[in-house]
């Protein structure tokens, strides 16, 4: 079936099988930041934004994405680099496989929530699993990144 959507701002048209997961479609388009980390909609590694909302691309029906705007980490290079530096500074990541999905959801959180506290952060990011670490470095990085965004907003 034919599908047309906007991928990171570019119009994409393709002929697909209607049972193809959005995840496979995105990887076929060269978006290799989108990873499959589980088979049970439980790890958060395949997170992408559909019309600005974070969803699991392994689960979201591809045909439903027809006509929508999809953003992967490849389309958020500047923000990803900015937050990535905070992750690195805290020594948060080890193998890095879960980073793209995690960063997508951190970006979605900072866009959706105003001044999230630690509980809000944990709640929003609970669906992003990392099997190397204990999330403490990530939490420090997220807090420092939010503080950095706030001070930027205040024009400091």
């Amino acid at each position: 079936m034919e599908i047309k959507l906007w991928l990171n701002g570019k119009a994409v048209r393709d002929d697909v099988s209607p049972d193809m997961p959005l995840l496979e479609f995105l990887r076929k388009q060269g978006m290799y930041s989108v990873k499959r980390g589980c088979e049970t909609s439980g790890c958060g590694l395949c997170s992408v934004l559909v019309e600005g909302k974070p969803v699991l691309s392994c689960t979201y029906p591809l045909m439903r994405a027809d006509g929508t705007h999809i953003t992967t980490l490849e389309g958020l290079e500047k923000e990803a680099e900015e937050f990535g530096a905070f992750l690195a500074d805290e020594g948060a990541d080890q193998c890095g496989f879960c980073n793209p999905g995690f960063i997508i959801n951190v970006i979605a959180m900072t866009r959706e929530l105003e001044n999230p506290d630690e509980e809000d952060i944990k709640e929003y990011l609970a669906g992003n699993l990392c099997r190397c670490t204990g999330f403490m470095g990530q939490l420090r990085a997220v807090k420092k990144y939010i503080e950095h965004k706030r001070s930027e907003g205040r024009g400091e």
Partner: peptide
């Protein structure tokens, strides 16, 4: 609802 998987799952 907030304990169900994660925000991404609950969005769809």
């Amino acid at each position: 609802l907030k304990h169900i998987v994660g925000v991404q799952f609950r969005n769809s």
